[in-house]
């Protein structure tokens, strides 16, 4: 479980997060939703320690993350997998090497074992015959899926996805949602997903934190997100005509 206590983040004078309080539970898909620019990515980067929050703290199973000693922090990080909004694949490596990278660094597995694992991970995200290609040779959606495969490689305990299905077609998007849910339940991972994809919000959100202009505006789950009477949330959820029609 990851607990976020009173986290505030400033960039210079500008306050981007305003004392956020929320929990991300183990074995569940936890969504962070909100409009573009509301602070989702910044919050996720605070969770994994890429940004240090000026106020508040982040607890992993009760242990405070940001002032952990370096050794312990690296140990914890070896148990994390993250998919960045822009994929962040290593462009000097082939897709295969990218996915094998965490295995190279943190395990003593032999070549054959590694190759099996890489193939398995790439199969999970429905990527075939691209092992030898470089990231620059893939489409945006394929990069995203390769990044997901890399995040899965080491069987992490904590998984972070920053908009995993933006830029994917509806069918692949669905596949990724199913994959995220399956992994979370099979391996009991603590999964945090940033999204503004309506389908994900309605189908996979076991807990949902709605962020509005850097403030936590509402928490709930996919079964009560449509029924909420929070006006700001409703404004966000029912922005698209399709969902409006669904409501009627």
């Amino acid at each position: 479980m990851i607990e976020v206590c009173d986290v505030s983040k400033y960039f210079g004078e500008k306050q981007v997060l305003h004392s956020i309080n929320t929990n991300f539970e183990e074995g569940k898909v936890n969504l962070i939703i909100g409009r573009s620019g509301s602070g989702k990515t910044v919050l996720m980067k605070c969770l994994v320690g890429l940004h240090a929050p000026e106020e508040g703290k982040v607890l992993y199973s009760g242990r405070e993350f940001h002032n952990m000693p370096d050794g312990e922090k690296q140990h914890l990080r070896a148990e994390m997998g993250m998919v960045f909004q822009g994929s962040a694949l290593f462009d000097s490596m082939t897709i295969e090497e990218n996915v094998a990278f965490p295995l190279d660094m943190f395990t003593q597995q032999g070549e054959g074992e590694k190759r099996d694992r890489v193939d398995f991970c790439l199969e999970c995200v429905d990527l075939q015959n691209i092992n030898r290609l470089y990231p620059a040779e893939l489409s945006g959606g394929m990069k995203k899926r390769a990044a997901i495969a890399r995040a899965l490689a080491c069987n992490p305990k904590y998984l972070f996805f920053d908009e995993p299905n933006s830029g994917l077609d509806p069918k692949t998007s669905l596949l990724i949602d199913e994959l995220i849910t399956k992994i979370t339940h099979d391996f009991n991972t603590t999964t945090v997903v940033n999204t503004h994809d309506m389908n994900s919000i309605i189908t996979i959100g076991e807990t949902i934190s709605f962020i509005y202009q850097g403030r936590l505006e509402w928490t709930g789950n996919s079964s009560n997100v449509l029924a909420s009477d929070n006006p700001v949330l409703n404004d966000f959820i029912f922005a698209q005509p399709l969902v409006q029609r669904l409501k009627k």
């Binding site: 980067k45 890429l50 690296q74 140990h75 070896a78 960045f84 290593f90 990278f101 965490p102 972070f160």
Partner: peptide, 12 residues
């Protein structure tokens, strides 16, 4: 392109 951030999150 956030590749350095990706390394850091991996604990490297």
């Amino acid at each position: 392109t956030e590749q350095i951030d990706a390394l850091e999150v991996m604990g490297i």
